[in-house]
Structures are given as structure tokens and as C-alpha cells.
Design a protein around this nucleic acid. Sequence first.
RNA 1: GAUUCGGUAGCUCAGCUGGCAGAGCAUCUCCCUUUUAAGGAGAGGGUCCUGGGUUCGAACCCCAGCCGAGUCACCA
Length: 578
Amino acid sequence: MSTPYLSDQELRRREELAQLKALGIDPYPAAKFEINCTTQKIHEGFSEGVAGFDTLSLAGRLTNKRIMGKASFAELEDSTGKIQLYFNRDEICPGEDKTHYNTVFKKLTSLGDIIGIKGHAFVTQTGEKSVFVKEFTMLCKVLRPIPFRTETDDKVYEVLTDTEQRYRMRYLDLIVHPEVREVFRKRTKMVQTMRDYLNGKGYLEVETPILQPIYGGATARPFKTHHNTLDMTLYLRIANELYLKRLIVGGFDGVYEFSKDFRNEGMSRFHNPEFTQVELYVAYKDYEWMMDLVEEMVEQVAIATNGTTEVQVGDHVINFKRPWKRITMYDSIKEFTGVDISAMDEATMRQACKELDVPVDDTMGRGKLIDEIFGEKVEPFLIQPTFITDYPVEMSPLAKKHRSKEGLVERFEGIFNGKEFCNSFSELNDPIDQRERFESQLELVKRGDAEAMILDEDFLRSLEYGMPPTAGLGIGIDRLAMIMTNQPSIQDVLFFPQMKPEKKVEIASAETFTALGVREELVQLLYKVGITTVEGLRDANPNKLHQDICSQNKKLKLGLKNPTKEEVTQWLANAATA
RNA sequence: GAUUCGGUAGCUCAGCUGGCAGAGCAUCUCCCUUUUAAGGAGAGGGUCCUGGGUUCGAACCCCAGCCGAGUCACCA
């Protein structure tokens, strides 16, 4: 494949690479480079006269270089931060041969290159902690320019601000934006805190199938795939609930799984096709017990990630300190709309929706209508952590009927910043009731609800063997991470969010064009004017193409013999028959 | 899907009422031994997203399209 599009800076770096090799320097050495310190440790531990910083060995990327004749200052960034380096020609090159400084460092090392250095810490005349370099080693020559951010005391010059490029080339985003690395460290810290908490309670971390013959445990459209050997349809899981419950049937008292789930639905700043949940099931407990657990665990997460229960999220400060507000769904709707819908039948409620300006359609049953009102009039306004409890039975086919309230189930959702982040019930363990709930879901499917649940016979069979009373919980890790790291979009807490495929520039080889009668030396001009494929040549306007090529030839001062108009026309004709 | 904004040098962006394509940083050459966005002198670098149209003349105006972002709607 030819590479006609290298920028001058890329060409320059490839030239540097070749020169390094010519000097006998391996730009990609195989040997390990022993590191005994980090930039952070120097900043934290070193000051004038402190011992233990005499034989440092550091590695990282060169992010700045200021050359002043025989001396230079540079900046090295490792995973913990940055430190200034001081290079002196005669220290780097004690003998007669000054090549390593004059050529290798000054000319063949560029910003972004990964280098290792050995030296000692000192403080410059201007008071900056720095490393006095005695030796340096090229560890990885970089072939593309890296747009490092430059900063002054009062201003930061941002780089790589195009969100598309940031998500597509997350590696580059992470290189140039240390604060993005910090977001993901916090996310991991968050998950570790939850795992430690659950392990501390003695619950078992488990793994269940991602490829499922029947998708269940939530209401969503799935991704569908096919297994060749078994010749069967499989689905990527939308939840793992029904498998974890089978494990409770099997005799474990508490199981949990951090699971990637997949839903084939729209994308937005709150939705990615694959996302992470932690699901937890604990035997002999109920949903009220689970509320206590969620409060405690999330409070710990807030402290672990932010050092306090109060977390800045956009314009709000959200306080995760226990206890959180608890209110029933009906009461919350009454509180926000003044309408008591608890006793309404489906028709009355449809009318109430109209009066409240809540959009509805005919496929919606009573449960879905309530959900619509709630989602429209209540949820967005719940900023501080709140538990909404006691949902209508129609929208919760896996939850146990309420112990005292007719028509409701023992379910709660945790909500903050106007968004649901967790969902929990006293799990339905009555196999006959469960069968009936699945069947009424099938009714919804007939009414056109594409997301209603389908019936899982094996799951029902497991319930018939007996599941103890169980409290279940699902927490959306991505949304929790968005809150804990104050990020506006789910894409900001996923390393590699789903993107549209990148538009690929197809490039036909030079031989392809010479075969169509293009003189070899003119191919570069074809590339230059944007003709990179046979199709592109075929569809070109011959007059424009002829002019473009001639003007490029002149502009680039190539001194090539311009093609005649007839020549160009002939290319197009050849391309059309190719 | 609806709607708003955007696409100009490697990066960040300016470009007025249509009149030679610009700045800072980065890159290259030269000077400089503790600098602080180091400095000084010089140089290279462009499909102004694409295709039409209007015009003596288009980065700019008009039409169509492509790509992206934000907001809204359905789903966690």
C-alpha cells in the first residue's frame, strides 16, 4: 500500500527513525528499562538536601523541549505526572563524541517520544524540582505528532477538542488529557469499592452466560446471533437476573456479578449498546433491607471516589449521606402533579395523562401509563438520592406482590440527578404467579410492545424447585460512574464507546493507475488532487481534473510534463472499461 | 428521527460588506550553558468538507449532499 498522505511532520519523524538506525540505535529496544521512581514521588518527596534521589531512573513521554546550545530543558510525563529534565551536553557525552546530545537528543528526539532517563533530582535557580540527566535512552520513536496541551499560569491552550476524535482515538485522548485517565481510575476505584463491600458481606462473585438462548430479566430489544455447530439462535444478554436467581435456587445465599449487558436500542448520552451493571441477589432478605444496603454501599463509593459524601454534578451538589428520602410512586406523582392516580383504572388514567400533557399511545397498558407520568413529571426533578417504592404490578413481572398493598409490587428504584441508577425488588418466587406474569407480558407483545418479556420455561422450572425469599438489585455502573466523576455523557466513562464506523479512505496502488495509462510520475498528482480510486477517476470531470493536475504540478514545482487533455480523457475512458 | 450549531495549516482558531489564504503553538535552519508558554532571526506547510449555481471575481452568497457536535423524542 502506498502512503501518499503522510504530512511533512510524519515524514520528518520517519526520517529521524532512519537516522537513529543509521547511528546503530534501536528505536524500539527489546530490553526492559528498570524504573525506580515516578515524577509524582519526586514532587512529593524531594526537596533540596533530601537524600534518596541520587540515582533515579524514570521513563515516559517527552512533552516539551527547550534547547539552549549546550544545555536544554525538557519535560517528561509518566503515568503519575510531569517533571522537568535538565540536559547538559558534557554530562550526556563525557568524551569527545558529542553525537548523543547534538544529534540524538537535539535533532532525532521529538515531542511524544518515549524515553528513559537516569540522573539525580535537583532544584533549579527558579525553584523548580527537576532531574539532572546523566543518561537517556530512546525507548520508542513516535511516528505521529502528538498535540500536547500547553499551559501558562493563567491560560490553558486546549488540544484534541473534537469529541469524535477523542472517542475514536481514546489512546491519544488519554495521552494528552491526564484528567481523562483520572476519570477512569475513579471508575475502577468505584467498582473495587463495591466489590470489596460485597465480598465483605460474604457474597459470592459469579459469572453467568452472555450468550443466552432466551433473553430475559429486563424489558429491551436484544442483539441476535447464531451458533453454527448447534445451528441455533443465541442472544447477547440484556440482563443476568434469571441466571443469578437460578443460583439462589441452587443454594447460594448471596451472589453478584458485574456484567456487561447488551441492548439493541437507541444511543444517547445515557445509553450505549453495551453497558455494565452489577446485579446482586441475597436470600432471606426483602427490598427494604436492600434499600439499607444500597445507601450504605453508595455512600462508601462516594467517599472512596471523592473523599466526601457530597459530589459536584453539573450545577448540583448531590449528597449521598444516609438516610435517603423514601417515597412511594403514587405519593411522588401526587406530590409533583397534585393528582392521585392510585385508584384510577386504565381509561381514567389515559384521560389523566391527556390532562397532564403526558404523551401516550394505544399499546400502553396501565403500568406503562403510570411509568410515563412518572418519567415525565417526577423523575427529572429528583436531584438528591431518592428511593421510589411500590410499583404497579403490570410493569414489574419479576417482582413479588406487595405484602399489604393491592395491585403493587415490592420494588424500588434509586434515583438521583433526575435519572434512575438502580432497580430492586423482593423477588417473585411463586412459580405459578411468575407463570401468569409472563403470560400477561405475552399479551403486551400482542398489543405491539416490542420490549415485553418472553417466557423462560427453564427459569420457571427452577422456581418450581423452590427459591427462598430473595432481595435482588441491579445498579447501572456507567451512570453511577458519570455521577461520581461528574461527566456529562456515558461516552466519557467508557474507554471505547460505540461509534459509527470510521469513514475509510480507499487508496488504489500506483500500479492500478499506470495500468490505466497514467504516466508513473503523474500518479502522485492524482493522489494530490483527491483521485485515489478507479471509481474516483472514472467519475471525474475531465476538464477540471486536467486543470487541477496542471496547477498542482506548477504549485509543487515538480517540473513534470503536463498531461494533455486527450491524455486525461483517455484515462477516464480506460477507467470506465476497467 | 426532529432541530440548532459547526467543518479553514499537524493543533487551537481568526478571516468584516465577496477582492492576493492568516495568527499563535507545533515543524525545519541558524544563534544561545539554569530556561519557565525560554528568547532572537529566517523558512516550509492549505482539496478553505464535497458537488453544483450566482458573479469579472467565492473560504464568504444560493442550492444539494457528506461528516460531526449539542438539544429533544424511545430505551438503563
